[in-house]
């Protein structure tokens, strides 16, 4: 190892690259973009270690610091930054066109928080609620079917619904009802999702009348006790 090489001029220029890459990594906000910058940082660090004579350190940085760390981080980010939304398989959410505006809006909304939207289909409403209770999904999306209420004759409507006060709520607002069990997601959805796209309620909020009259604190308390280990 020649000691005169340590005093070469190009070494100083190479050394500047490491804090530059580290600064780029620190000011990233998106997790995936940060992963790529982490790879760049690892490559620059391996270059510096090799040029300074630490060949073993450079090899370890390339093998562990770049390859293993990035792969593990990518798997962790991929499995954690996701919102699982439970839907009914009978609705044919993936193929039906009238779901598309809502799904696109939700995806754009979640994308701002670097989250992905993953749809999980269930066969009936019972298993859907069961999945929400057992924390298999973060929320459910159901259709309230206002079309049936509109098509029914007026004298048949009280026979169909034991509680007639909920009927105007279904017909006036959006047909989609999103039930969420995570309090932070509930905050995001209530503040940024317009009511014409979908109605949002927290888990434990029974009936749409409670949502309209505005007694939301008990519902949020229930949801937080359910998800305190998330």
């Amino acid at each position: 190892m020649s000691h005169s090489a340590i005093t070469d001029n190009y070494l100083y220029v190479i050394m500047v690259l490491l804090p530059l890459a580290a600064l780029m990594l620190v000011i990233q906000t998106s997790p995936y973009q940060a992963l790529v910058i982490r790879g760049i940082l690892g490559a620059v660090a391996a270059l510096i270690y090799a040029v300074l004579g630490g060949a073993d350190v450079a090899l370890t940085e390339a093998l562990v610091g770049t390859m293993l760390a990035i792969t593990l981080y990518a798997v962790a980010v991929r499995s954690s930054l996701v919102m699982r939304l439970g839907v009914l398989s009978g609705e044919e959410v993936r193929s039906n066109l009238h779901w598309r505006p809502l799904l696109n809006y939700l995806r754009a909304l979640l994308n701002r928080y670097h989250l992905r939207l993953e749809l999980v289909t269930y066969d009936d409403v019972q298993t859907l609620h069961q999945a929400l209770q057992t924390k298999d999904v973060h929320g459910t999306c159901l259709v309230c079917r206002p079309a049936e209420a509109v098509q029914l004759p007026d004298d048949d409507r009280p026979a169909q619904h034991s509680n007639p006060s909920t009927v105007p709520v279904d017909t006036l607002e959006s047909p989609y009802l999103i039930t969420l069990r995570v309090p932070r997601l509930y905050e995001i959805f209530t503040t940024e999702l317009p009511p014409v796209m979908a109605q949002v309620k927290a888990l434990g909020d029974d009936g749409l009348d409670d949502l309209r009259t505005g007694d939301r604190q008990p519902a949020l308390a229930d949801a937080s006790t359910l998800t305190e280990d998330d």
Binding site: G39, A50, A58, T66, M67, I70, A74, V75
Partner: peptide, 22 residues
């Protein structure tokens, strides 16, 4: 250092392929 450079050249690109696949 030359040996390490060859290893980093091959293994670094393998890590890149893994990340791109994910």
């Amino acid at each position: 250092i030359g040996m390490v450079g060859v290893l980093i050249l091959s293994v670094g690109n393998a890590a890149l392929m893994l990340l791109a696949h994910i």
